[in-house]
Protein backbone atom coordinates (compact mmCIF):
# COMPACT_ATOMS: atom_id res chain seq x y z
CA UNK A 1 0.00 0.00 0.00
CA UNK A 2 1.07 3.54 -0.73
CA UNK A 3 1.00 6.07 2.09
CA UNK A 4 -1.81 8.57 1.52
CA UNK A 5 -0.77 11.73 -0.28
CA UNK A 6 -2.80 14.52 -1.78
CA UNK A 7 -1.06 14.52 -5.16
CA UNK A 8 -1.58 10.84 -5.98
CA UNK A 9 -5.11 10.98 -4.62
CA UNK A 10 -6.04 13.87 -6.91
CA UNK A 11 -4.37 12.23 -9.89
CA UNK A 12 -6.31 8.98 -9.33
CA UNK A 13 -9.61 10.82 -9.06
CA UNK A 14 -8.96 12.87 -12.18
CA UNK A 15 -7.78 9.88 -14.23
CA UNK A 16 -10.91 7.93 -13.30
CA UNK A 17 -13.13 10.82 -14.31
CA UNK A 18 -11.27 11.36 -17.58
CA UNK A 19 -11.84 7.74 -18.54
CA UNK A 20 -15.56 8.37 -18.17
CA UNK A 21 -15.77 6.19 -15.06
CA UNK A 22 -17.92 6.79 -12.01
CA UNK A 23 -17.55 7.64 -8.32
CA UNK A 24 -17.48 3.99 -7.25
CA UNK A 25 -14.54 3.38 -9.56
CA UNK A 26 -12.64 6.36 -8.14
CA UNK A 27 -13.23 5.00 -4.63
CA UNK A 28 -11.99 1.59 -5.79
CA UNK A 29 -8.81 3.21 -7.18
CA UNK A 30 -8.21 5.06 -3.89
CA UNK A 31 -8.76 1.97 -1.76
CA UNK A 32 -6.58 -0.20 -4.01
CA UNK A 33 -3.79 2.37 -3.73
CA UNK A 34 -3.98 3.58 -0.13
CA UNK A 35 -6.07 0.94 1.60
CA UNK A 36 -8.74 3.50 2.51
CA UNK A 37 -10.41 6.77 1.48
CA UNK A 38 -8.88 9.69 3.33
CA UNK A 39 -11.14 12.50 4.54
CA UNK A 40 -9.08 14.93 2.44
CA UNK A 41 -10.17 13.08 -0.72
CA UNK A 42 -13.85 13.85 -0.14
CA UNK A 43 -13.80 17.44 -1.44
CA UNK A 44 -12.00 16.56 -4.71
CA UNK A 45 -14.44 13.65 -5.20
CA UNK A 46 -17.39 16.02 -4.70
CA UNK A 47 -16.01 18.53 -7.18
CA UNK A 48 -14.92 16.02 -9.82
CA UNK A 49 -18.10 13.96 -9.83
CA UNK A 50 -20.49 16.85 -9.05
CA UNK A 51 -21.89 15.08 -6.01
CA UNK A 52 -22.83 16.44 -2.59
CA UNK A 53 -20.82 15.56 0.50
CA UNK A 54 -23.74 13.44 1.71
CA UNK A 55 -23.79 11.49 -1.53
CA UNK A 56 -20.07 10.79 -1.48
CA UNK A 57 -20.14 9.75 2.18
CA UNK A 58 -23.25 7.68 1.52
CA UNK A 59 -21.57 5.72 -1.23
CA UNK A 60 -18.45 5.17 0.86
CA UNK A 61 -20.50 3.97 3.82
CA UNK A 62 -22.54 1.57 1.69
CA UNK A 63 -19.69 -0.68 0.56
CA UNK A 64 -17.74 -2.89 2.94
CA UNK A 65 -14.57 -2.44 0.88
CA UNK A 66 -14.44 1.34 1.18
CA UNK A 67 -12.79 1.98 4.53
CA UNK A 68 -12.31 5.50 5.89
CA UNK A 69 -9.44 4.64 8.21
CA UNK A 70 -6.17 2.97 7.27
CA UNK A 71 -6.24 -0.80 7.72
CA UNK A 72 -3.66 -2.56 9.86
CA UNK A 73 -0.31 -3.47 8.33
CA UNK A 74 -1.72 -6.95 7.93
CA UNK A 75 -5.33 -7.76 7.13
CA UNK A 76 -6.89 -11.14 7.85
CA UNK A 77 -10.30 -11.69 6.27
CA UNK A 78 -12.03 -14.85 7.44
CA UNK A 79 -14.95 -16.28 5.50
CA UNK A 80 -18.16 -16.30 7.54
CA UNK A 81 -20.53 -17.81 4.98
CA UNK A 82 -22.46 -21.09 5.07
CA UNK A 83 -20.07 -23.42 3.23
CA UNK A 84 -17.26 -22.46 5.60
CA UNK A 85 -19.64 -22.60 8.60
CA UNK A 86 -20.32 -26.22 7.67
CA UNK A 87 -16.66 -27.05 8.24
CA UNK A 88 -15.95 -25.03 11.35
CA UNK A 89 -15.60 -21.36 10.39
CA UNK A 90 -17.50 -20.22 13.49
CA UNK A 91 -15.12 -22.05 15.81
CA UNK A 92 -12.12 -20.79 13.84
CA UNK A 93 -13.39 -17.22 14.06
CA UNK A 94 -13.94 -17.53 17.81
CA UNK A 95 -10.42 -18.90 18.14
CA UNK A 96 -8.71 -16.08 16.28
CA UNK A 97 -10.83 -13.42 18.00
CA UNK A 98 -9.83 -14.82 21.40
CA UNK A 99 -6.22 -15.11 20.37
CA UNK A 100 -5.88 -11.58 19.03
CA UNK A 101 -8.32 -9.88 21.39
CA UNK A 102 -10.05 -8.35 18.37
CA UNK A 103 -13.57 -8.77 17.11
CA UNK A 104 -14.33 -8.80 13.40
CA UNK A 105 -13.95 -5.34 11.91
CA UNK A 106 -11.40 -4.19 14.49
CA UNK A 107 -7.78 -3.12 14.10
CA UNK A 108 -5.26 -3.67 16.88
CA UNK A 109 -4.10 -0.57 18.78
CA UNK A 110 -0.58 -0.86 17.42
CA UNK A 111 -1.94 -0.92 13.86
CA UNK A 112 -0.40 -4.30 13.17
CA UNK A 113 -3.51 -6.33 12.39
CA UNK A 114 -7.02 -5.85 11.08
CA UNK A 115 -9.46 -8.70 11.46
CA UNK A 116 -12.45 -8.78 9.12
CA UNK A 117 -15.25 -11.10 8.13
CA UNK A 118 -15.87 -11.72 4.46
CA UNK A 119 -18.88 -13.34 2.84
CA UNK A 120 -17.59 -15.99 0.48
CA UNK A 121 -14.28 -16.20 -1.35
CA UNK A 122 -15.45 -18.92 -3.73
CA UNK A 123 -13.16 -21.49 -2.09
CA UNK A 124 -16.22 -23.25 -0.68
CA UNK A 125 -15.24 -26.83 -1.48
CA UNK A 126 -12.09 -26.46 0.64
CA UNK A 127 -13.12 -24.34 3.61
CA UNK A 128 -12.59 -22.76 6.00
CA UNK A 129 -11.11 -20.08 3.76
CA UNK A 130 -9.48 -16.73 4.33
CA UNK A 131 -7.55 -13.95 2.67
CA UNK A 132 -4.40 -12.93 4.47
CA UNK A 133 -2.98 -9.74 2.96
CA UNK A 134 -4.66 -10.67 -0.34
CA UNK A 135 -3.15 -14.17 -0.39
CA UNK A 136 -5.92 -16.79 -0.50
CA UNK A 137 -5.90 -19.57 2.12
CA UNK A 138 -8.02 -22.72 2.24
CA UNK A 139 -8.45 -25.87 4.35
CA UNK A 140 -7.61 -23.84 7.43
CA UNK A 141 -7.71 -25.16 10.94
CA UNK A 142 -6.50 -23.61 14.18
CA UNK A 143 -2.94 -24.86 13.74
CA UNK A 144 -2.58 -23.71 10.14
CA UNK A 145 -4.10 -20.33 10.89
CA UNK A 146 -1.88 -19.87 13.96
CA UNK A 147 1.15 -20.72 11.84
CA UNK A 148 0.13 -18.20 9.19
CA UNK A 149 -0.37 -15.53 11.84
CA UNK A 150 2.99 -16.32 13.43
CA UNK A 151 4.63 -15.95 10.01
CA UNK A 152 3.31 -12.38 9.82
CA UNK A 153 5.51 -11.46 12.80
CA UNK A 154 2.89 -9.09 14.21
Amino acid sequence: MTRWNEKTSRALIEETHKRGETLTMALRALVDTFGYVDEAAIAPLMQTFARSRAEVLGVIAYYDDFRTTPPGRHVVRLCQAEACQAVGARELTAHICAKTGLSLGQTSDDGALTLEGVYCLGLCANGPAALIDDAPMAELDKDRLDAKLAALKL
Binding site: E82, C120, C124
Partner: peptide, 11 residues
Protein backbone atom coordinates in the same frame (compact mmCIF):
# COMPACT_ATOMS: atom_id res chain seq x y z
CA UNK B 1 -20.92 -10.76 -8.67
CA UNK B 2 -21.03 -14.40 -7.60
CA UNK B 3 -21.79 -13.77 -3.95
CA UNK B 4 -23.70 -16.92 -2.98
CA UNK B 5 -21.86 -19.00 -0.45
CA UNK B 6 -21.15 -22.43 -1.90
CA UNK B 7 -20.82 -21.21 -5.47
CA UNK B 8 -17.65 -20.82 -7.48
CA UNK B 9 -18.49 -21.77 -11.06
CA UNK B 10 -18.17 -18.18 -12.29
CA UNK B 11 -14.81 -17.91 -10.60
Amino acid sequence: DEGDSGTFSDR
